[in-house]
Write a protein that binds this DNA or RNA. Structure first.
Lengths: 129, 129
DNA sequence: ACTCAAATGCGACGCATGTCGCATGTATGC
DNA sequence: GCATACATGCGACATGCGTCGCATTTGAGT
């Protein structure tokens, strides 16, 4: 599970919503938030492939991109990093923290909570060794 | 208000607790978490001064360091960045998110909530313009 | 006054990442 | 068959930051 940077996250959001996008489509969709040149978008995308954040899929000769991690998984990584590094918390973030976010449905919040518990349990295990 | 990196935050935590520390003291206190050489600690500290995260105070010729932002202010910046960038939330994080953290007392949570509201209100204002 | 250890200042390397541009391919319309 | 437009591959520069070493200064002890 890889922790994306803020900008990478912006791109990922579009991919989660759309499922699969070409570089051009993704750029057009995200340029308002990033203010990037097309080249910048593509380069970032390229590095996200190397890192395993997105997968490349050629469709009829055109390259398209798909998120390699689910939204909920990614949110879980980010949230547990925040809880650990900023809040200095052992336990996972309470579900209440996500309640107001438009990004996640109630069902996804439940899923998130499960993942969060797994992550903090695993961290604890490693910490003890 | 400056947003510290994870490592910078580790150093800041010691400064908040101790109030004022020399480079050597701070290094000794934090080396267990950072696993840094003394030089690394000092360099980071130096850059934190440039950035305005800490202030240098010479006491009888010995350099000491003091956090330039309060713990609660810093937590507020970090929390609102998380809410905005990760959760895509307009409103501030609910206080419940901080409830379990050993870093903040109930009184500080109240203070935090006020700051968080200010920050999100200001962000909104700027966003609209 | 001399020595020694600790404190300081400063330069540097490497990696990640934001940011671009250019050269080459390739498909499409004339 | 050729020009035009977009897609792709790839190289590059700057900045931030983690990481470290070294040379110089300075204070304390003898």
């Amino acid at each position: 599970m890889i922790k994306p940077s803020d900008y990478e996250l912006k791109l990922l959001r579009h991919l989660w919503r759309a499922g699969r996008l070409s570089a051009r489509e993704l750029h057009d969709a995200s340029v308002e938030e990033t203010n990037w040149s097309y080249s910048a978008t593509r380069k970032t995308l390229e590095r996200m492939i190397e890192k395993g954040l997105v997968t490349l899929e050629a469709v009829h000769g055109l390259n398209t991109y798909v998120a390699a991690q689910s939204k909920v998984e990614t949110l879980a990584v980010l949230a547990s990093a925040f809880a650990r590094d900023v809040l200095d918390l052992d336990a996972p973030l309470p579900a209440a923290a996500f309640a107001g976010s438009k990004l996640v449905s109630p069902g996804e919040i439940a899923e998130l909570e499960t993942l969060l518990q797994d992550l903090s349990a695993k961290a604890k295990g490693e910490g003890k060794s």
